[in-house]
Design a protein around this nucleic acid. Structure first.
Lengths: 211, 211, 211, 211
DNA sequence: GATGAATGAGCTTTCATTCAT
DNA sequence: CATGAATGAAAGCTCATTCAT
């Protein structure tokens, strides 16, 4: 069995090669899942379809994932990671920001960017896929982090920063979802709605400030 | 033919008794469905569970509903009907309202009342249950009606009433959902959040008005 | 309860009236069954459909018939009775017949008349409805009777009457079914096929006769 | 990459082994279906019984067949294929035949062979199983082909070949069914009946020929 | 007797998961 | 490790039959 010896004698490279192959397989599975979810929805998502779409066997899917939910968890995790990345990115803007309006602008545009990236997948994740309590906690934790960051950024400009940050974040998130994911019944374009959203929130955040 | 007369005179009560039995069965099925949905979620909702929870046989479920989805449709319909009733009720307030602030108050409190009624069921319906395109259209139609009513009410007080009505309705709906259905991560009580929501929206709606 | 006394005091007329009502109900059920069978086939035949079509309640169906099969049995029985009636009628022709050709003619036209009466029902009965072994025996018994009658009629004209009668009866039955029930792929009209059938069978029956 | 080569060289046998396993499963399912149909009839045929009898799980049945009807289609197809094979085989006899009697003999014995092969299954297929319109067309198409072949074979010996071929084929088919499938009420052995059938048909076909 | 609501065994089918190859 | 055939619990639904009214 030459393969076996090869593995033993040259563990590192082969392992690394294998790992990259593994990673590729995992990635193919996750991407296939996301594609099916975005294109055909939760009801059409089954493990055989995932395997077929990923170009691997169903056995391989279970080689890398203990069950179907765990694939979804990866997708949700990636979404949350994207959210965290966006948060980190925004934090620098927030901290280096000039005034409260810039902060509102950063929050609103941050959520819009988040929802504009693959809105069909986003919709599926937020309205079809059953979320486990653990995932829900992770989502809320991220939300909380964002609120804290925004609170801290706002606190030097306004009073009652936490309350305002909470409203700002929730409203920006919900309305970005409506304008760019649901996209229905809008009297004007989504970006006009986004502008109006900013206007409303800037006015709200700045209301009654000390200066 | 005395039997015939006897039968005729007896038919009504029997018929009525039967009808009330039927209605009770239908009601038990719908209620059981709503209960399971609220308590154990869409994933746990199956026709056998519905029958068991309703205390009827699976056959009775299919005596009154052609399929599983149709039971859900009734529940969704009832929810929409509740929304429409609330709208009708609010409309009188809107039309007899004194100023723009009253309108905002009516919209915000209307959505809060809507979301406070069985929030777990509300959550299940809005984030788990697969909604058919037809149902989605009905939901959007109701939203649209509400926006129109609010637009009309606002138009005598402010400029750009439609845009403002849209933002007002969407924000009120989304935030009421967050404060009273999701109920997570709030720095203060839900009703304080609601008060803040009203404040923000009143200020937004009244901003830049002519007088 | 005046009805009850009425029943007791005037048993006969009421009983007869009831019996005729019963007979009407039974008849409606049987006719509805036959209609559904002829029009929509065995797969569409269920007891609720029968009750609805007969204009009676499902309970009444089970008042008069112990189960679904027993309704079918009545239909099959009626068909067999029609066959027996046709046989009795034909027997007089057979016995008063002038020659072997008349006998063949009588047999062929007898089967044609049998198959022409409601061919869709006939088709359903012969190719869809599951026949119980008991029914099959009854059918074979009737066949047997016919063969015996034909044998007896033929025996004064030909040798080997039983063999010839068997072939005659089976061929006439099978071909009448093909020409008038299946009605497919015929190069000429069904009645021309029937004429040819007679010709063939007359020639066969008369072949090698003593005269 | 020795593994790859090893895999490649090993793939074929494995693939073949898998294929033969699949084929064995498919075959077991089809055979089980045919057995149940022959022994216990259409009423007793359900997918669970098929799986149990085939010694496979119900899941495997649906791995290879999209639904119950498709299993039956395979059986019907096989029957039709057997009929077509018999036709092809008979055609050579027909074309190389010496006279009209040989043709009749070939047709009669062809149908007998067809019906003698698993007569119980044959009976179930022809009198119980619901045949789709498409299958019915296929059956009639085969019948039509046979009639055309026989017509062509007969046309050099007799006048009105098509009419005679139609009667010949229909009679041979129907009577072979009666003698070898239904097997009831025969005064003499099935093969004697078959001989008589041939005699009748030979005489009919040759009647009124020119020579 | 008549009614029709209720019953539940039993059917077809799906799909997450396992395991022999 | 990869494969994909096989598994079987579980779901949706039908319909002959029963039984309270």
């Amino acid at each position: 069995m030459p393969e076996k010896r090869a593995k033993k004698s040259a563990k590192r490279p082969v392992r690394r090669a294998l790992q990259s192959r593994s990673r590729a397989t995992v990635d193919a599975i996750v991407k296939a899942t996301a594609r099916i979810l975005a294109e055909r929805g939760w009801t059409a998502l089954n493990t055989n379809a995932i395997a077929a779409r990923a170009g691997v066997s169903i056995g391989s899917v279970y080689e890398y994932f203990p069950n179907k939910q765990s694939i979804l968890n990866v997708i949700i995790d990636r979404h949350l990671a994207a959210g965290e990345a966006k948060l980190a990115e925004a934090t620098s803007i927030l901290s280096s920001g000039k005034d409260a309006d810039d902060i509102v602008e950063a929050v609103v545009s941050g959520f819009i960017q988040l929802h504009q990236d693959d809105p069909r997948l986003h919709r599926a994740l937020s309205t079809e896929v059953p979320i486990s309590p653990a995932q829900r906690r992770r989502i809320e934790a991220l939300r909380s982090k964002i609120v804290i960051a925004v609170t801290s950024a706002l606190s030097e400009y306004v009073d009652g920063a936490e309350l305002k940050a909470t409203l700002l974040v929730e409203t920006a998130d919900a309305l970005a979802h409506r304008w760019f994911v649901d996209k229905v019944g809008l009297p004007v374009s989504a970006s006009t709605m986004a502008g109006e959203t900013s206007t409303m929130l800037k006015s709200y955040v700045s209301a009654g400030r000390s200066d």
